[in-house]
């Protein structure tokens, strides 16, 4: 699965302002609302679902990456927002390190297959240290999209 198939181009946030998990999740949900991927009236329900998932265990997966995610009846198709933080966010990671790259993933109910594939694609994309450094060094959204497109093209 290609990242740009589900990452919303308009929901890439280069300078995540908050350093708190809950606020960062809200920031990225708002980015998806502004990108018209989800409806504003469902904001609180979607944020609650994401925070409920975090309560079961942090979605920080190591190497400074977190993938907050939830399934929701208010989401029509698999969609993601991407946030980059320069100061780092406390995501209650197992390794206790702050996170700098946050991929927020929303999926409709009953979409275990595509959801798992999206998680696999994100992990594959971010496994390379140099790629992560390049991603963090991007100065605008367009360079991020170009960088991800390049990786997507490598998939056959």
């Amino acid at each position: 699965m290609k990242i740009m198939d589900f990452l919303s181009k308009k929901a890439i946030v280069l300078n995540i302002k908050s350093t708190k998990k809950e606020e960062v999740i809200k920031e990225l949900v708002d980015a998806l609302i502004n990108a018209e991927e989800i409806e504003k009236r469902h904001r609180n329900k979607i944020v609650d679902a994401l925070l409920a998932r975090e309560k079961l265990g942090s979605t920080a997966i190591g190497q400074g990456i977190a993938i907050p995610h939830a399934k929701s009846e208010y989401v029509e198709k698999l969609v993601a927002a991407l946030g980059i933080s320069s100061s780092g966010v406390n995501f209650d990671a197992l390794d206790e390190e702050p996170v700098y790259i946050i991929f927020l993933l929303l999926a409709p109910q009953d979409s275990a297959g595509p959801h798992l594939k999206a998680l696999a694609s994100i992990s594959r994309l971010l496994k390379d240290k140099y790629f992560r450094e390049n991603l963090k060094a991007c100065k605008d959204e367009k360079s991020i999209i170009n960088l991800i497109n390049q990786e997507d093209e490598k998939k056959v």
Binding site: I61, G62, I65, L94, A112, L116, A120, I122, S123, K127
Partner: peptide
């Protein structure tokens, strides 16, 4: 020992 590693496999039921 890496969550990212395990997720990368995309191992379905």
């Amino acid at each position: 020992k890496s969550i990212m590693g395990i997720l990368m496999l995309g191992a379905e039921k």
